[in-house]
Design a binder for these strands. Structure first.
Lengths: 173, 173
DNA sequence: TATTGTTATACTCTATAACTATA
DNA sequence: TATAGTTATAGAGTATAACAATA
């Protein structure tokens, strides 16, 4: 059974009659009810992620680095001598999409590609000196502005618990 | 100071010499080190969110609903008589992008638009009977398969704590 | 034959400007 | 003049197929 045209019209009329109470024409925008939405973990996860990325972008704006670019630089620092496929896979980036991303970083002289000597198909990746310097500055901004704010909001213990649960979901779910 | 061509070549050679130890040509793919990445809240947040959405999609696949569509139906159920702008704003969807989304739901007879009687610019939104039925089935799938799995992984207390922190970040960060 | 980096391509999300009809 | 819904459009992000060089 589907809703009838008449029922639709009635509902539309109802919204009119219920309306004018607060004082003739007072932009009366009562907040909506989230209902079960506020119990949906995925929903809060997404909204929180957007907020955190937005703040990251803002905090690290002077260096013009996105979260994805920052993650690449971090990974290159800790894993010198790896090729594109290895870095991309670790970050969940598809190899074709990683090409343009690297082009961007390399054109800014933050990292470099070098043909591997033992497998000439591979491009060994490494940070440049400028890449290391920018990464160092980025880490400081992230720690002192971004993560510090999160710590302030949640408290160190809660922040650690949150990170632990998120990591668990990312790994085991 | 930038890294020299020679340094780059040296690093490439180094990766060769360090290489063959485990047993001549044994796809030796030692796992990469995440380093500071595992302490970056935003990184875990993103990876966890992707996992959760993927599972949601899978659990609710029989009904062909995305997380975003599910959130719209939930909101319509709890807030009948609201217009497109109000629903879209609440979900953080831009009005122009909400049009195609509604077209999809309406073409499947899950919800309906009706011109408001007091403001003929507005489209009052409401669930159809079919929309209510599909939403009811979706809720059951989400609760019994999706959220149940998360509860199993984290435990009820941790799950509640996680939700509380995510909500706090989404609201106050 | 298989793999690495790459190109081309397509599809989804997100974002902004501007139009129309109403107010 | 301002607002609701809409269109057009552009840019990210993500996905797959296929090609050249190399193994």
């Amino acid at each position: 059974m589907t809703v009838s045209k008449a029922a639709v019209v009635d509902a539309a009329k109802a919204s009119r009659t219920v309306r004018k109470e607060p004082a003739e024409e007072a932009t009366e925008t009562s907040p909506l009810h989230l209902g079960e939405l506020s119990e949906l973990l995925g929903y809060s996860l997404k909204r929180a992620q957007l907020k955190v990325f937005e703040d990251f972008l803002h905090c690290v704006a002077p260096l013009q680095l996105t979260p994805a670019q920052f993650s690449v630089l971090l990974l290159l620092e800790k894993n010198p001598g790896r090729n594109q496929t290895e870095i991309a896979n670790t970050l969940g980036i598809l190899r074709p999409n990683f090409v343009a991303m690297l082009d961007g970083l390399e054109s800014r002289d933050l990292c470099a590609r070098a043909r591997s000597a033992n497998d000439r198909r591979s491009h060994i990746l490494m940070l440049t000196d400028k890449g290391r310097a920018v990464l160092a500055r980025a880490k400081k901004l992230v720690a002192s502005k971004h993560e510090a704010r999160l710590n302030e909001l949640l408290g160190p213990a809660n922040r650690a618990a949150l990170l632990s649960m998120l990591t668990k979901i990312a790994r085991e779910f």
